[in-house]
Design a protein around this nucleic acid. Structure first.
Lengths: 152, 152
DNA sequence: GGTGAAAGATATTACAC
DNA sequence: GTGTAATATCTTTCACC
């Protein structure tokens, strides 16, 4: 498939505001509405666009405390890994979990209301998962930059 | 403002798919289209919904290498901090930058094409920023969980 | 690759209940 | 909160370049 500069501009714009109408996009890109429509459909079908989502304000819904947790497993047998990853997937507080290189096995991004809720999460949820060796938490003091928008 | 269970369900659904029609939402929630429409407008105006965005497939656009970089500054004077944060904001490879507690000052999420591109980024962009003391990088081996969707 | 026009669907607003 | 109706706007299809 051809993926050209116009498609890149389109993706940038749709990332910034997916509620824009095709007419607005056509004006911005100097294309007809139909051309914009067909390009978007193509980007959706080819899998360039995975989904459309509403971005929620964390502060408004009382989830403004962010922490990154390093987790080390006791062992790395297939069973332990699979069960840990499955359990982590079920935790609403964990938005992201990466298997990473380095001293620890995993890096988790955790979002809760406040420090007290974080303590609750650690004591009652994360550390109750079997096979966890050790954890190390970093707290976000300030979000300097936070986006999912990929620029070309 | 009243923020009830119906609003939470609405936000969850809009996070999962912001292209749903109000009619689909009304069926799912057992509400009238008018009620759904007015609730969404309220959530937008009150700031519960920050924006609507298209979620892009990183692999399709050749940005499938993810790394987390710890950065320590040489000093923490106001000038150094401000200029570092400003420079980082201008780097397209850096999607997220957090001022964090712990041994390092910052944690950055970096997205590039591959390891070679990461090396380029480190040598020619990140480490050319003034006042950087040291860095420590972790590479993502596997994305176990990766979402921005907040569940209630 | 692209265009413009027409048809169909949805969003929006107003209103009575 | 409901349902309906009118209108504006947007999406989608189509014939054509």
């Amino acid at each position: 498939m051809i993926f050209d500069e116009t498609d890149k501009k389109l993706l940038e714009r749709l990332q910034n505001d997916s509620k824009q109408t095709n007419k607005e996009l056509s004006n911005a890109l100097g294309l007809s509405v139909t051309a914009v429509y067909e390009r978007i459909k193509k980007l959706e079908k080819e899998g360039y666009i995975d989904s459309y989502t509403a971005v929620i304000n964390k502060r408004k819904i009382n989830r403004n405390f962010v922490a990154f947790c390093h987790v080390k497993l006791l062992q790395h047998s297939q069973d332990f890994v699979v069960s840990f990853e499955k359990e982590v997937n079920g935790l609403n507080e964990v938005l992201e979990c990466y298997h990473v290189s380095g001293d620890y096995d995993y890096l988790l991004k955790v979002i809760v209301k406040d420090m007290e809720a974080f303590r609750e999460f650690m004591v009652k949820k994360l550390t109750t998962i079997n096979h966890i060796g050790s954890t190390h938490s970093m707290f976000v003091i300030n979000e300097v930059k936070q986006t999912n928008i990929i620029r070309f």
